[in-house]
Amino acid sequence: MKKTVIFGALTVAGLAAGAAGAATLDDVKARGKLNCGVTTGLAGFAAPNANGEWEGFDVAVCRAVAAAVLGDKNAVEFVPTTGKTRFTALASGEIDFLARNTTWTFSRDTDLKFDFIGVNYYDGQGFMVPKALGVSSAKDLDGATVCIQTGTTTELNLADFFRKNNISYEPVPVETNAEGQQQYLAGACDTYTTDASGLAATRATFETPGDHVLLPEIISKEPLGPLVRHGDNEWGDITRWVLNALIAAEELGITSANIEEMTGNTNNPEIARLLGTEGTLGEMIGLDNEWAKRAIMAEGNYGEIFAKNIGEETPIGLARGLNAQWTDGGLLYAPPVR
């Protein structure tokens, strides 16, 4: 659901260099919609609901950007992408913005000519196994068959882990999370490995989630975040500060429920600047002064988005952990809004 092995890097980088020549903001405004790359389907993060409408944690970021730029959170065309196709779609200009549980790495940021605009979920790679397998540690998986998505650095992390622990495995390649889930449930592999959040999301869709366990080992750092092409700094600034606005809003106590009341009725200068009643922040990024207000109103602040889609009260059941605000011992930290 995330990371790519850098094959075809020169092709992707070449496409990105060409596509970045156009001003993405102008293209999005002229088109009247944001083309947003998402996963092919992962519960809680990005998946169509029963009515065919996309929803989820990553989808909410797309809608916030659309609201800020176009004034309509529904002015989004969601483009499903796989681990192999996502970077070509962004580099070629097929999509304007990739919000697809993608890990920020050195090579993606530099060699592939992309810019990560921040981290919206701090994660790590884990393992899921059937409880009946009787395994309590990933170090007990010597000789196991492992379902793993192709075109991802999950493969590299997996190889490193087994090599370091002097154990062996047999990979079972899959293209999408749906295929990985199907193969795992069919018994084609002993374990499925991907981001721990993705495993929790996948397990939540099982008929009997309790028959499957997530092993305690987290074998990598996976800072997941949206990204854009190199070379269009204005678009990078807009999308980066939309994400920062969602994070800052939670810290400042601004919610989708109280935002109207707080607009123009606050003694906090940072809230006033963020909601556009003071200063000219919108002008600095080519938007009007209510860009952040619309972004927050779209799906709520970061905390609201987390709680609604993947939080402890949802079937996904994820605790905030590292994704708590810095004031609560987490890593979330928006730069000052001034």
Rank of each mutant, 00 (worst) to 15 (best):
G83V: 13
D123C: 04
D195F: 05
G303K: 08
V28A: 08
V174Q: 05
A91W: 01
V119P: 02
T193V: 06
D195I: 04
K29E: 12
A132H: 10
A204I: 08
E278R: 03
L98E: 03
H230T: 15
N265E: 06
F161T: 09
K164P: 13
N177C: 08
A196L: 13
E175A: 08
Q325F: 04
K73E: 01
I259K: 07
L274K: 02
K84W: 04
E53D: 03
D58C: 05
I117A: 00
P173S: 10
S92P: 08
A249W: 01
L90R: 03
A75N: 04
Y192E: 00
A13D: 13
T11H: 00
R273F: 14
G279R: 10
E283G: 03
E55A: 07
A89F: 06
I247Q: 05
R294W: 10
N165R: 02
F7T: 09
G151I: 09
E283K: 05
G151K: 05
T205H: 04
L243P: 13
N309T: 12
R229H: 14
T103W: 01
T81D: 12
L322R: 08
G225Q: 00
I316M: 14
L274Y: 07
I310H: 13
T152F: 11
E250I: 14
L185I: 00
L332I: 08
T277V: 11
N265R: 15
L275T: 12
L274I: 05
V172M: 08
F7N: 11
C62Q: 05
P130D: 09
I271H: 02
A319G: 10
V59A: 05
T266M: 15
T239H: 07
V79Q: 00
